[in-house]
Design a protein around this nucleic acid. Structure first.
Lengths: 202, 202
DNA sequence: GTCTATATAGAGATAGAC
DNA sequence: GTCTATCTCTATATAGAC
């Protein structure tokens, strides 16, 4: 009845949410099937093995990230705006009680199928590369200020966000927002409250 | 044959390693039993359910952390020395390919039994409290310099280390060391290379 | 305390009807 | 494309012998 793409992408959407909520080993074909109102075998039709599903998942993250990146480029965002968009992206995860997919793979690493790990490495490469260029550009234009190589700052920024999402789940959601505000300060960006004031002043 | 404490603590040691390597859902009673050369049922004798095991695990982390903390106090460590000890603690995890237990719970959160989550919250409280006091003391004595409340800096520090251990597994181990070096710089501590030079000159 | 044996449930996966 | 039915393997967990 439905076109091929329909169910397939619903499965991926569902799996994505489960992945960032419960971890890769924290959900099963049965969970997905139940949520979508189909049977176990229907999910296997699209993704014969869980490795296939996991790999498709990570590859979709990459595609989404690329699209997101391009949108920023199209809108000719400044480095500061781009970084704020990245904070928003992670902030939405926090609102939904999710963690970063890179953190999931990092924690479950030895149990993650190799094709999936490889794709994750590639995703990480792309994210770090983008963050590096963004930080570099921002510093060159005088909008950001920080010491040391942009590539190293990029990795530590990502690590703090990733860890922050996890701590927010154990502790309190606001922990994440305070971390983001600290990161802003360290980069010489307007803080969250300053930003609110700017918006209010309009 | 062996005294009660013997096997029990071997189980906990083994479970601890598996937990920080594969995650809480990434290992089973069978894994532990095989590694220790005993049977499944022997493990269940000490920890009837996996909840019991997980809870004992987190409580042992708390005990170990308290002991570690007291040792620092006994040795009258400065704030900088104390922080370096904490970096070493996490650095040993990295060397062993492990991640921080807080990260494991953070990622698998909804699937973690509630008693274990509660104990983890308490552990996190203690770690953040200790880090906060340490940062505060160091700043008051002029050995550390950073802006903002020490409590917030404590959380972001922990998040960066935790995320760093995870990224190090996906990417490259050295990513973690570079993050630590950045954290040192941000706090006005001598960097890793400066420290090496001091030791060499020493 | 540790063993053998077993119960039960869930997960990943496949065959074949519709 | 989705279903029912079923297979196999693994995981948690228990009973009872030694």
């Amino acid at each position: 009845m439905k076109r091929r793409g329909q169910t397939r992408s619903r499965i991926l959407g569902c799996a994505e949410e489960l992945m960032q909520t419960c971890g890769f080993h924290g959900f099963s074909y049965h969970h997905i099937a139940t949520r979508l109102g189909v049977r176990n075998a229907a999910v296997h039709y699209y993704f014969p093995s869980k490795v296939d599903l996991g790999l498709a998942l990570v590859e979709r993250y990459r595609e989404n990230f690329r699209f997101w990146k391009e949108q920023l480029a199209v809108r000719r965002c400044t480095a500061v705006q781009a970084l704020e968009s990245f904070f928003e992206l992670e902030g939405r995860y926090r609102e939904q009680g999710k963690v970063c997919p890179l953190g999931v793979v990092g924690v479950e690493y030895p149990g993650i199928p190799e094709p999936m790990r490889e794709a994750t490495r590639a995703l990480l490469d792309e994210v770090v590369e983008w963050l590096t260029v963004t930080l570099q550009t921002g510093r060159a234009s005088g909008d950001l200020s920080f010491a040391g190589p942009p590539g190293e700052r990029a990795v530590s920024l990502l690590a703090a966000l990733q860890g922050g999402l996890q701590l927010a789940r154990i502790w309190q959601p606001s922990a994440f927002d305070r971390i983001v505000d600290e990161l802003r300060q360290e980069l010489g960006m307007p803080s969250g409250t300053e930003r609110s004031a700017l918006v209010a002043a309009g």
